[in-house]
Structures are given as C-alpha cells and as structure tokens.
Amino acid sequence: MSPLNARPILVDTNVILEAHRCRCWNPLVGGLQVETVEMCIAEAYTGQQRRRDQLIIDPGALRKSFHSVHAVSKSITAGIALLDGPALDIGERELWAHAFHRQDAWVLCGPDAASMRFGYIHGFRDRMISLEELLRSVGSRIPPDLRLHYKAAWLRELFAKFALETK
C-alpha cells in the first residue's frame, strides 16, 4: 500500500470544519493530497455550515487549498442513491458517489458513523481513516480539543462494532 501522502485523501464537510476549528487545516493540506466534492465545499462556507457558531472561512482560500474539488454529475449521484444503506446527507452521499467512481487508491476521512457504515458495507473498510491519523501522518501535533469522532480510537471502535454485527 502506498503511503498516505501519495494517495488522494477525500474529506467531507465535517472534517473541513473541524480542521479549521482546531487550526490544523494548513498542515493537513500542506502534507497531503486533500480533495473533496463541490457539495462538501459549499457546505463548509460561512453561512452554510449548519452550525450555531459559524467559522469564518474564506471561500477562495479554501478552494485553493484543495488539491482538487470535484463536480459530481447527477447520474453518478443517482447511482449511489439507488443503493441500500444508511441515510446520508447530500454532501456525504456526493462524496461517496465520487469515491465509488474513482479507480485510484483514494482514502476517505469522515467522522460520521453512518458515512463510515456506508463505506464499510460496500467493502471499503481499509479506505477509511480518521483525521487524527492523517495529522499524525504529516507529523502535525494533535490538537488537544480535537473532538471524539475525529480520533483513531473512535473509528477503530466503530469498525469493531460493525464487524460484530456481521458475524
């Protein structure tokens, strides 16, 4: 398996916001090939964050910080929408639709149990990673206020639960 810095890292809206909140976005995008989809970047803009306290994020700078931001066609999103699985929000679904369509060694980072379940049941257990692990891979300090769902232990525990369900 190629090292993380040689692989496209797909991040969802939550990860973009948490990395900005904890001030670890720059080391992340500086050390890795971070990518997302149009819907996730739109959801990360100030005013669109669906959070009470809006982080001030400059849209131009945010877009520029990504290695790529992908537009996802309606038919690709529709293909994912037809699949069984957990109920995802539109940005999460678009990110997975894009990932399903790619042929390279992408890795996906998201903190939501349903999004992780979606990847798990479709056979991508080894393609999902926590924000904490990504930060470690670039030698960045782990912010002390990093929330639970972005930590490696949370993701490990979640996968252990999923594994028990399928036995």
């Binding site: 669906r50 957990p86 940005g91 939501d112 149990a113 349903a114 639960k161």
Partner: peptide, 14 residues
C-alpha cells in the same frame, strides 16, 4: 440510529 450508523448526523438535523 445515529450511534449505530443508520443515519448521519447531518441527515438527522435536516
């Protein structure tokens, strides 16, 4: 549903 990963937090909020 959220804890077991059957619905995402963002989808639940919506």
């Amino acid at each position: 549903g959220i804890a077991e990963g059957h619905i995402s937090v963002a989808r639940t909020a919506k």
